[in-house]
């Protein structure tokens, strides 16, 4: 997963420089290439959003036209669906906020000089932790802290903190050490170097970690229903247990579309927040 996020990052960066590094550019060439670059990088995002909308419309049309049993109709009533979705998003966002508040400062702290010796071990643990199956984490934690919304949230936080923590650390680590030295050499305090040099340069990698975490959260939040946490997972479980295929399919599709939508939002944020000049 780590590789994937980093590769995506490198891919984007590589594309940028290929488009926007004119040999010894005359001044007018720069704005033109910037404008072109703008459309090219937005194009993928537009396609992704269009794809999500088309799939959603298809789902709606199918639900309207399909021959559904009364149970299916009750379960799939728009109001009920909306309620599950809101629950799902609440779970996801709450967990995400907690993750950001914990993992980013922790990631920063672990790359500072006094704690730097911890960087490698923590990264190793984060990688191992990522391999643990989500369902295991959810259920085990539920046995420990009890069932319900908060148990679900806690396990989601634990699970999603790892990519954010790791990408924060990797993002900060990959900042060219010579730039940090240049900053210190100019008389910037270590805090100034962190906020004005290191963090801005780490933003692309950090945001892609956040996006990964959000997508993970949307998927994992479907498991929250096992511990009475609510969310769209209920549709999938009901669908499986009662052999209601339309319910199962609707639940799965909604989770997938929500994940894609969150991924899209994340990409837009990444695109807007990416420091210019990178």
């Amino acid at each position: 997963m780590n590789n994937r996020t980093l590769n995506t990052e490198a891919g984007i960066a590589g594309g940028d420089s290929a488009v926007e590094t004119p040999g010894d550019p005359a001044a007018p060439a720069v704005p033109v290439s910037r404008a072109r670059l703008g459309w090219q990088s937005w194009r993928g995002l537009v396609y992704q959003l269009a794809g999500i909308l088309v799939a959603f419309l298809a789902l709606v049309i199918w639900l309207r036209t399909a021959d559904l049993s009364p149970i299916e109709l009750t379960t799939l009533a728009p109001a009920a669906l909306w309620g599950y979705t809101v629950e799902h998003i609440q779970l996801t966002l709450l967990a995400a906020v907690i993750v950001l508040v914990i993992a980013i400062p922790l990631g920063i702290a672990l790359t500072r000089r006094p704690l730097r010796f911890l960087t490698a071990p923590v990264l190793a643990i984060a990688n191992v932790g990522q391999a643990a199956p989500a369902i295991g984490v959810v259920v085990l934690l539920a046995f420990w802290v009890g069932f319900g919304f908060w148990a679900a949230t806690l396990s989601l936080v634990l699970y999603a903190a790892l990519p954010v923590l790791r990408n924060t650390m990797v993002g900060l680590q990959q900042v060219d050490a010579r730039l940090i030295e240049a900053g210190r050499g100019m008389g910037m305090s270590s805090a100034a170097v962190l906020f004005r040099v290191e963090l801005p340069l780490a933003v692309p990698v950090m945001l892609s970690g956040v996006r990964t975490a959000l997508v993970l959260l949307v998927g994992t939040a479907a498991l929250a229903t096992f511990v009475n946490g609510g969310g769209l997972g209920i549709l999938i479980i009901t669908g499986v247990n009662l052999s209601l295929t339309p319910v199962l399919v609707t639940g799965a599709l909604l989770v997938a579309l929500l994940a894609l939508l969150i991924d899209w939002v994340g990409r837009v944020v990444e695109h807007v927040a990416r420091p210019k000049g990178l």
Partner: peptide
């Protein structure tokens, strides 16, 4: 040391410019 360094120019290889700043 920060005050000291603000009074001493420092140039490194390749300029060491911050890529996200103009």
């Amino acid at each position: 040391s920060d005050t000291l360094r603000r009074g001493i120019g420092y140039v490194i290889q390749a300029g060491g410019l911050f890529p996200h700043m103009t």
